[in-house]
Amino acid sequence: MSELKAGTNLEKVFKAGHFAVTAELGPPKSADVEVINKKVQYLKGNVDAVNITDNQTAIVRMSSIAAGALVLQQGLEPVIQITCRDRNRIAIQSDVLGAYALGLKNILCLTGDHQKFGNHGTCKNVFDLDSIQLIQALKTMRDEKQFICGDEIKNSKKAPIVEPRILIGAAANPFADPFEFRVIRLAKKVNAGVDFIQTQCVYDMERFEEWMKQVRERGLHKQVKIMAGLTPLKAVGMAKYMRDNVAGLSVPDYYIDRLSGAEDAPAEGIKICVEQIKRLKEIEGVAGVHIMAIEWERRVPEIVEAAGLLPRP
């Protein structure tokens, strides 16, 4: 089928076979629109789309849909993250309709970080759906034109069906355990109908390549666009923190050594990131990179440029 599912810029980039580049934009922990505008200026023209995180690490931030709408107004295409932590299927489907109505047509389906890690640890979580079921729900809405309950997506009996035409994304973590199950879980997401995948940030290239090998053995790279996640390391401390405290992340010692030996650690971190991109481009089945420069969006343009990924299509 040559027809586009959602017709977003990101989908077109994939379709055309370009090496896609996306970045991440964390909405502010306040109602300050300026924060978004500033980050958009760094990223606009340098990436194909930008992920708007949904209360990442369970810390309250501006809603991903509202921030996404603001980003779109500025001429940058958003990928809206939706987690299963805070909303049940009623709220999620309602939000998907709303997001689509606002012109937000890329949605990334996530389970969501546990609230324990955030600033409202005493709250109740939802997890009515899990990420795989969320993918399935969005696909049903888009392709079957039905809600989860089976009702058609129309305002009344005589009204036309107006379904949200969404490009469906999801995450994959090649580094968590059980390792052998990681590709199976990706296959489950593919079966559920996901269109593109962003991975957890990659540092351990060997393990990532091993995972990609398993992906290719199952032929999954032909059914879904896989974008490798990258987070440039700002400092040795950050690298060590990621290594020691983030579940499912392994930062090899040789990167830590390079950073601690460097005069300009941030520059070295960016250099490492660029090297990684160049290596990732050579791996069969990697369709792009997703750069998660945490509160470091301003350095994304130079990474993209140094990796030879400019201009964007």
Partner: peptide, 22 residues
């Protein structure tokens, strides 16, 4: 499962432990 996932595990599974309280 800390998140009651029917299609788990999430990315927080490390060395047999749950990241919520390893």
């Amino acid at each position: 499962c800390s998140k009651s996932l029917l299609n788990g595990p999430c990315g927080g599974s490390q060395e047999g432990k749950c990241e919520v309280d390893p």
